[in-house]
Amino acid sequence: MTALRITPMFAFGSRRALRMVERNLLVYKHQWLGLLSGFFEPFFYLLSIGFGLGRLVGDVAGPGGQTIPYALFVAPALLAASAMNGAVVESTFNFFFKLNYDKTFASILTTPMSPADISLGELAWALMRGAIYTVGFLGVMVVFGLVRSPLILLTVPGALLIGFAFATVGMAATSFMRTWQDFDLIQLVILPLFLFSGTFFPIDAMPEGVRLLIQLTPLYHGVDLLRTLSVGVVGPDTLVHVAYLTVMGLLGLAVVSRRLDKLLLK
């Protein structure tokens, strides 16, 4: 079968993608409560795990070996995890559903909009939404006195970078998916990442081999990136994290752009 639309890399910069953002803004005009409510989940987690459970945990070793309260330890990790989850859900389940089943998106494909425009636009919107939540979450951290350094402002682009890296790889993975069952694999990857990337407890306590393995996985870099920025202890590690996530995002993008035609099943 020949590719229906030849979409070179530069199509990723298509202004048409912004029309999807416009659509979402229209939709959320009616459902602003839904948009707002997305903010509460990480907030509830911070209250429960950070402060509730945090009282049992006490202080833990943070970046640079300094001892920090558990709430400060877990807050940036929750931010990183929610950036990952948001990006993955959007780029896999939602993306697959929209391109293959959602009749709204089928009708958009009858206009000059291409699948690339739609997917990139939806992704841009997901990232924007994520950025809004990040800012809200930072506000909560300020209120609870979890701010140690002005560098914490850099967690906003940091969370965006995590979202970008996971979203492009998620889209690339989706281009290989054929049925809903294939998505089980994504859960199989995401849940261990969520639980073991130094999110809830320092990985120092882990056996050497496990620790090295964790250091190869992406969420670990995301969590540690946001944590070092929040605490204000940046160093060469921080650059490694940024480089890792950037390369991951670009690799994902490269695969997606080669496989765009596969995203169209019919």
Binding site: L26, V27, H30, K103, T104, A106, S107
Partner: peptide, 10 residues
């Protein structure tokens, strides 16, 4: 199209 594909959220 054969089946309505209107945007139900709008």
């Amino acid at each position: 199209p054969q089946h309505d594909t209107l945007d139900n959220e709008l």
